[in-house]
Amino acid sequence: MKHQQIRDKLIFFREQSLPENETRIIQEHLVHCKECSLFLDRLNEDFATIQSEKLVSADPFYYTRLKAKMEQHEQLGVTSRSWAQVVVFSVLLIFAISGGIMLGKNFSTLDYQNETVTSELLLFDGVKQEPIEQFLLTEE
């Protein structure tokens, strides 16, 4: 195996998960390859760090803090629920108002065509329709 191939297997070598023949080849390589040997030490130290990071004893006040957070959550839940109610009612009110306006516009009995007729009626020019001469003649 080449140097790079061996280096790529060092993480598996340290876990003893390689076949026997590969393990032997790597062991032989490590004897004379300083770089691989140092990198293996480095890997071992890094993995030891992971183990040292673990908590091994429980915090006796953990449950007290947890209960305090749960109570805080419950209070926040009530507050957010009341806010949600306000928001929902406001949205419903806006919908109701805009719905009313729409209904009013679409289903109003006041027809635009009728409005035109009305305006025509208002503009009725009696003099044009019945000239004054005609009126006087009729009076006689």
């Binding site: 990071e53 673990k54 908590l55 091994v56 004893s57 429980a58 953990y62 449950y63």
Partner: peptide
Amino acid sequence: VEKYQLLVVNTCK
């Protein structure tokens, strides 16, 4: 909580 405290905290960490 007492039983699983370390498991949960260590996993989060």
